[in-house]
Amino acid sequence: MKEISLNILDIAKNSVKARASLVTILLEESEDKLTLIIEDDGCGMKEDTLRGVCDPFYTTRTTRKVGLGIPLLKLSCEQTEGTFSIESRDEETYPDSHGTKVTAVFNKKHIDFTPLGDVAGSIVTLIQGDPDMDFLFRHTTPCGEVALDTRELRAQLGDISLAEFEIITWISEYLKEQYEEIENASPTA
């Protein structure tokens, strides 16, 4: 993957498959660290499946669909001497609190740090692909914050699909504007 934003797109797609109703994507940036958290309230995974998802060569029938997504994210984070973790509660064991949480911490100053890339493009792609699912996105940087909550959009739009061209275009511009704002700002710290 050439950009971390592509890993985000890829990993969040797993939450779609896990039939989540809400996917939270958080990016927290400091001067030298980037923390990525992707959390969903989907069906979760049992312990033995969870152990397998980090190993690209662990493919049994039940985990084949997990594939390379998680190993690729883990690689891009560990090559910066960062840390990676994945926690999950399956819905059978935890009927009221199931879901999966992926946390990746990157060292931005490391020579093997992959650029973040077009995060707005990934968020728009996720919404376009699964307009019935809710996404909460927040990217905090020393220069300010970019945020989007599809539940707030839905409150305005009623039953109009988020995948309608007019809405997708609006979301894309909305995020781009926010990114321009923080790019032009100076660090508040």
């Binding site: 993957m1 592509l6 797109l9 890829d10 797609k13 594939g67 728009v124 792609t125 692909g129 061209f165």
Partner: peptide
Amino acid sequence: GMATCGIAAGARPVLNTFVEEVA
């Protein structure tokens, strides 16, 4: 196609171009 293979090969800008151009 928007699986890991598609995404890694550059499917995201392709999709977004179709969405923009059609709109």
